[in-house]
Amino acid sequence: MLSFTEEQIIRYSRHIILPEVGGEGQKKINEGKVLVIGTGGLGSPVAFYLAAAGVGTLGIIDDDVVDLSNLQRQILHSTKDIGRPKVESAEEKLKALNPDIDVVVYRERLTSRNMMEIISGYDVIVDGTDNFSTRFVTNDACVMAGKPFVHGGILKFSGQAMTIVPGEGPCFRCIFKEPPQQGSVPSCSQAGVLGVLAGTIGVIQATEVLKYLLGKGELLVGRLLTYDALAMKFREVQVKKNPSCPICGENPTITELVDYELPACSIQDNKPFK
């Protein structure tokens, strides 16, 4: 028997009315446990929409504080939050939007040391990280733990997203074998990003999470979705599982989690992505 309060029925009525969701689907969302890594550009819209949708347990992890230069795209934070820990500012907005949900706050950096323990409590992991070390370690941990991982990335006027379901398709390392070499890359602030891209890609990631929780639709498994905001074009690149992948291949060479020492956000000053 589905038990919703009067208020929940109204709050989630536009979901419940969808035949593909219904009361049963909404219950799955309400029981869902999702970890959003980073509460920045991508993490903001992901966490915001998942809170609105009623994801019952929303873990947010970030060790950073809000900076004025974040506000062009990191929509969970406001001008008055400058200097505050991002997770604290984020928690406040998420709880204000939906007091129904549990927000679990981790004010720390996700590394090989705390990774396995933290992800173990969640159904889906969302990549909203700004650095490649965390992204590669998260991919490896998710493959090892068999947890789905929704990747997203943005750069200048381009974005990409892909869902990794271990055992069902390629992982992030099947495509990007290892982080780019240190030194080949200037900082994120030099390269720039059109703020709205965080919304476009973040909302796609949130959509994938809801589909996964609902068990509906076709996930972006084996399909890297790329977006060019200038051309206003989406494109899909089919990617296969790589038999020689160091983590999910036939003879994996990575058997334990390792961190990489890398600058945040590896980006080179290239022409807009075609």
């Binding site: 920045g40 990549d127 990007f176 690149v237 590896s266």
Partner: peptide
């Protein structure tokens, strides 16, 4: 040929 880029998270 598809060229796929490394992309960050927009921090």
């Amino acid at each position: 040929l598809d060229v796929l880029m490394f992309m960050g998270g927009g921090r």
